[in-house]
Computed example of a mutant assay.
Amino acid sequence: MSVTINAHQLGRLIDKTIDHMGSEYVEPLHGIRLDVDARYLYAVASDQYTIAVARYQLNHGDQQQEPWARTIPAEHLRSIREWIDTMKGAGLVTISTAKDRLVFEGPQTDLSISVNTALEFPDWRGILRKQVEQAADGPTFPALNSGYLARFNTGDVLRARVTGDEKPLLVFAEDFLGAQMPARYAGVYPCKEETFDGAHQSWLWTLSAGSKDANLDGAAYEEDRPRYEATTDIRETGETLLQQTLRSGWDMAGKSGDKPEEFLAHCLAAVNGWAAFRYLDALYNVDPRAAAAVVAETAGEFDSGEISEFAWGAAEKAGFDPQKWLDDYEAYRKRKAEERASETLA
């Protein structure tokens, strides 16, 4: 029984769940559970206060196998994560089961760890199904441990559902589902109010000085950033690329006949904008952190104003000959100039 996943995605499954695993005093929970069904590979961890599930959709070939599950002991997680970091993100890792082992086969090296197949892991599907399917329980004002909340900081945009004062908080993201148990509320200051009405009443005097129409809409504020400074935000970068593609496409209209050079310039801008967006989107789906790092690094290169130097160095590093490109381009420009001059004389 085996599944195949790329290195980046396997690293993400571990990173999204590792902060939720139980302590060494609860052996069944002291690790990350790899659970495979006919559609997904899941990584699951819980310490009984929080539970986190990250999943990866299997390719068609892997979906023919029988379901299986094994718990990676906590003491092996660091070595597995370091092993993943030694390979390129797109490198494929095959995870297979043996009698009492999990085997990770990479492009260059393999890693084998011992596992205890007798450990009983909780029915995490049943636990989360119960919470997801239950209706919200009236006006809710649950007490939550902020330290546990921090465990869900994986860089994703999260959606949350509050199901009741003494019921778990549900957290959703792309291919991620988690839950946090409510705190056993002791009524200790500064959150001594046990109901929302009580908390509201305690803040009335302070908040009454504010306007009822006030908001924190992002449109009401503008970043104090020069127009030429490139954004480091990945979503804003994607929006800019899509806008460039569409605007260039709109500008192409009516330029093909009377202004062919402008038409070609807009065509090139539209093609490059769309290509850049597709590449960025693909990288984000493989590894959001790598995509964000590339956007931030590229923004710094834009702001430095040395793009030509960076491109020249990248071309040489890739084994190309940018000097030949320059010579060919200069010859092309010279030829075009001579053709225009001859047309003028004629």
Score class of each variant (00 low, 15 high):
14 I>T: 14
14 I>R: 11
14 I>Q: 12
21 M>V: 15
23 S>M: 11
25 Y>N: 07
26 V>F: 12
32 I>M: 08
42 Y>T: 02
51 I>C: 02
53 V>W: 00
56 Y>P: 09
57 Q>W: 08
58 L>V: 03
59 N>F: 05
60 H>M: 04
60 H>K: 12
63 Q>H: 01
67 P>S: 11
86 T>A: 10
86 T>D: 12
87 M>K: 03
88 K>P: 11
90 A>R: 10
93 V>G: 14
101 R>S: 11
106 G>F: 11
107 P>F: 02
107 P>R: 03
111 L>A: 07
113 I>T: 15
117 T>K: 14
123 D>R: 02
123 D>S: 05
131 Q>E: 12
133 E>P: 00
135 A>Q: 11
136 A>F: 09
137 D>Y: 07
138 G>R: 11
144 L>C: 05
147 G>D: 03
153 N>W: 15
161 R>S: 14
163 T>H: 06
173 A>P: 00
173 A>F: 06
176 F>N: 04
188 V>N: 12
190 P>Y: 10
190 P>C: 14
201 Q>P: 02
202 S>M: 09
203 W>P: 08
209 A>T: 07
217 D>A: 01
233 D>V: 00
234 I>W: 06
252 M>P: 05
264 L>S: 15
265 A>W: 14
269 A>L: 13
269 A>C: 09
271 V>Y: 07
281 D>H: 13
281 D>I: 11
283 L>D: 02
283 L>Q: 13
284 Y>P: 10
287 D>T: 15
288 P>W: 08
294 V>E: 03
299 A>K: 03
299 A>L: 00
299 A>S: 09
303 D>N: 04
303 D>M: 00
304 S>M: 08
304 S>D: 07
304 S>T: 04
318 A>K: 04
318 A>R: 02
321 D>P: 04
326 L>P: 09
330 E>Q: 13
333 R>T: 12
337 A>T: 10
339 E>C: 05
346 A>K: 12
